[in-house]
Design a protein around this nucleic acid. Structure first.
Lengths: 331, 331
DNA sequence: ATGAAAGCGCTAACAT
DNA sequence: ATGTTAGCGCTTTCAT
């Protein structure tokens, strides 16, 4: 491919003039014209590797996510990309699948590329692999305390779910979810729910669903819930808080299959606020995470740290969640 | 940051030896040891910009998609990333939002970065902006004929939908979707449906839904369908083919709200085969696109063209779709 | 196996 | 405003 020298020769000017022209600095109008012609003629495209080597200013931000194949991460990725773009950054998308080795290799890659920064939502402790002083902003979880963290208020979300169910005069409350040692945010949701119930003198039961992959366990839970409905005969006063929309969604599908009517017999609240596309929502009642705001806050914070590597102070932001009424509760 | 020269000095060897060591070539074991120590001590990380400048071999593949916030694109992005990674490539994710200017700028960026290749699913004609000889593989659509194209067989999918509905002895068939000049694949779905019906002597009606954003139009369609159900009294023999899962999903939601029972009164087949996550499917009956295979085929083809820029011949692949039974048809 | 040195394409400092 | 030139950090050829 043609390089700047070729263009300079063709346009009968020096490389510096070409460089200046390309970077929007003033050049003689005749020179500009000639350079323009030469660029077209030679199909010249600037080599950013060379530019980066010289300037040390990469346009890339590395975004590490466990998955992109889930409405939550899709939406987050969308907004992150949007805000990065607005600031002139390009996104390198790294899907970690919660694999520690992959996360490590992505951080290394980011450092080798001299990426402008890293944005990560990681459940292992990725942050401990950062050797260089590359700016990093974590989403959801960061335990070392050395990097900025943007998350939503999962604990308050759990409380809110409890409150909404209790407001509906449901006597029988059930939490469906897990106690997962690796997931601070899921633990917080559960704790919020439990604490609110306890503080308001409401009994509740727990249905442990260890992982979303365990179909059998989910079916067991469904069956237990059904037993309870039958034994309560027609009281129809069961309220369920599922720790994620995915769990809620799978649960509801099974309940409906078994002939349970929702929300008449059982009311369900999920967590996350899944939107399948910008225009398609599930009809699930849910605690909605402020995904757009998480993305915006994280990107802005990262930008701050990129622009001001020394002085920018680390942030710890917890954003509020909200209840979104759907058709799985009686509102 | 420390560079190779620093490491060489620290390890008392030449830069060439350091370079060899890093790239896995044979070095004296004592030298290796010293270099290893020096790297650790100085926190050395190789600068890939310099490496790329010299070798002209980028690890980046640029992936241009209209959206990532949709189950279809999420899943596609997941698989594309997976296969790229398997071959040692990194993905630069570019969301175009169907914006022509953005697409153009992404292609330019890819060329400036000397990216290894471009993978694109574009509805404008992105391919005409490619100045350099960077390999490009298109997904879904490519009209210039100069690049490889991987798509699924939308026309056969439309036929399949018609066949499935006709097999259920449904007298009243309705196509809900659009004739969109810019979307070859949507047109093909419709044409397949129409042709199959016509060839089998089945009447059908069209309900134009111009865009998924037009809620009002969708409601109109729903109301028309409801009128038809009422006027047909209890025949309960309506079958709908919606041109995307999104349309089908929104439609069903409205129908249920109006008290229509699905699939007893109306049977619906969508198109795409949305999976919300690897474990969460909609209960929609649908024509499923072979998303994983599309990704795999596209990545392999791109790799072929990257490895063999001159000789690799362009591919035109059309992958088969399949019917996936859900709970919106009586099976 | 190792070292010296050229050079990838660009930017920026400096001189004019 | 323009030209000359050093040098960013690496790989690779060539000589040893």
């Amino acid at each position: 491919m043609a390089n700047m020298k070729d263009v300079a020769r063709e346009a009968k000017v020096s490389v510096a003039t070409v460089s200046n022209y390309i970077n929007g600095k003033k050049v003689r109008s005749e020179a500009a014209k000639n350079i323009e012609v030469a660029i077209k003629k030679l199909n010249y495209v600037r080599n950013n590797a060379a530019r980066l080597l010289k300037t040390d200013q990469s346009p890339f931000v590395v975004f590490v996510v466990p998955s992109v194949w889930s409405p939550f991460f899709s939406e987050l990725t969308f907004w992150v990309q949007k805000y990065l773009n607005k600031l002139g950054f390009k996104m390198v998308l790294c899907i970690s699948e919660n694999d520690y080795e992959k996360e490590k290799s992505y951080v290394k890659m980011a450092e080798e590329q001299r990426a402008a920064g890293i944005l990560s939502i990681s459940y292992s402790d990725l942050t401990s692999h950062v050797l260089s002083d590359i700016p990093l902003v974590a989403i959801e979880k960061e335990t070392t305390g050395q990097f900025s963290l943007i998350s939503s208020d999962n604990y308050a979300g759990g409380q809110l779910a409890a409150k909404e169910l209790i407001n509906r005069n449901l006597e029988h409350l059930i939490f469906v979810g897990s106690t997962n040692y690796e997931s601070v945010e899921l633990n917080a949701r559960k704790a919020g729910f439990e604490d609110f119930c306890n503080n308001h003198g409401h009994k509740f039961e727990l249905e442990e669903v260890k992982t979303r992959y365990d179909k059998k366990q989910l079916l067991d839970s469904v069956n237990k819930i059904i037993e309870r409905i039958i034994s309560e005969s027609k009281k129809q006063n069961i309220g369920i808080f599922a720790h994620t929309d995915e769990t809620a969604f799978l649960l509801i599908k099974e309940l409906i299959k078994k002939g349970i009517r929702i929300p008449e017999q059982v009311q369900v609240i999920g967590f996350d606020g899944w939107n399948l596309t910008p225009n398609t929502k599930l009809s699930l009642s849910t605690i909605r995470q402020p995904i757009k705001e998480i993305a915006e806050t994280a990107v802005k914070q990262l930008n701050k740290e990129i622009k001001n590597p020394k002085e920018a102070e680390k942030a710890r932001v917890m954003l509020p969640v909200s209840y979104r009424a759907g058709e799985t509760t009686i509102n």
